[in-house]
Design a binder for these strands. Structure first.
Lengths: 152, 152
DNA sequence: CTACAACCTCAACTGCACTTCAGGTAAAGG
DNA sequence: CCTTTACCTGAAGTGCAGTTGAGGTTGTAG
């Protein structure tokens, strides 16, 4: 009825747990105002924000980065087409790189299913494994720090 | 020189930290035998195992599942083409599903960059966000439990 | 007006994949 | 022989993305 949504209603409509909404709020990803009795009430824009957050999550983008992107969208303002364009363009690139990498890996994997090439000298996958080592004992943490997740 | 590798050598060749090797050993992913002085020594097969582990990690497969797959490969035995075929075939399917999903998302995202369609009623992405809610307050945890990571 | 469901806060816990630290031992070079 | 580097163990800490629990308050339906 009202334009205001309770936390429970937002949870139901977004498919997220109430605890997750509290969590996102603490992280500054969403915002609520309160009733006289200190209960959260959400504007409708929260659903769009949550949809964007969920998308980004599915793209493997860490919450911190989503927060950063959303912080440029004025709070309480429904993300505009312009806002969305900016975010999605950046994420599209990340996603595109990730898709490319995954396809390459999938196809190499496919090749290896047939060839059974476990040779460290010739198999592209095995070499992929060794390649990093040859780059020195370097920053293998990059693998975890987003390098493989969606950036590379 | 020797066929035996120390933990440091394995770390260098695999690009993994020594602590990670200890960790994998505790989890049963790799194995070592010890010198009279209780230091780890690795057979060469460990490098292949680690390459496989790294690949799987890059595919987003959790260590527990990698452990499960590797457990069917006798320890201390260099994974054969047959072993590899079994694992990679299973992983290929997961990876393929994931690629498909990512491509769909990327293309929808691309469409949305242009259209700026933030309408909850017509935008496919926005609806994707809402769709789950319509499936009831159900197991949204599936999103985290591998559903989006590589299975769906 | 009274149940009862939904809400509140804050702290602690979960699981994954590791890393870091403290305190001690082993092996290799000079 | 001695020093330095590599190694050992077990416990605790890290970062992410939340969930769970305790103890208490609010809002709504009957």
């Amino acid at each position: 009825m009202s334009r205001e949504l309770t936390v429970g209603q937002v949870a139901e409509r977004s498919g997220l747990a109430v605890s997750a909404l509290h969590f996102y709020e603490k992280k500054g990803l969403i915002r609520s105002h309160r009733t006289s009795g200190n209960q959260r009430r959400y504007d409708r824009d929260v659903l769009r924000r949550l949809a964007i957050i969920r998308m980004a999550q599915e793209l493997g983008i860490p919450l911190s980065e989503v927060a950063e992107a959303l912080s440029r969208v004025p709070l309480g303002h429904i993300p505009s087409a312009e806002d969305w364009r900016g975010m999605s363009a950046v994420w599209y690139e990340k996603l595109d790189r990730r898709v490319t990498m995954l396809i390459r890996m999938r196809d190499e994997l496919n090749g290896c299913i047939g060839c059974g090439c476990l040779s460290t000298t010739s198999c592209p996958l095995m070499n992929a494994g060794d390649r990093l080592a040859d780059e020195g004992p370097g920053p293998r943490r990059l693998l975890r720090e987003g390098g493989d997740t969606y950036q590379s």
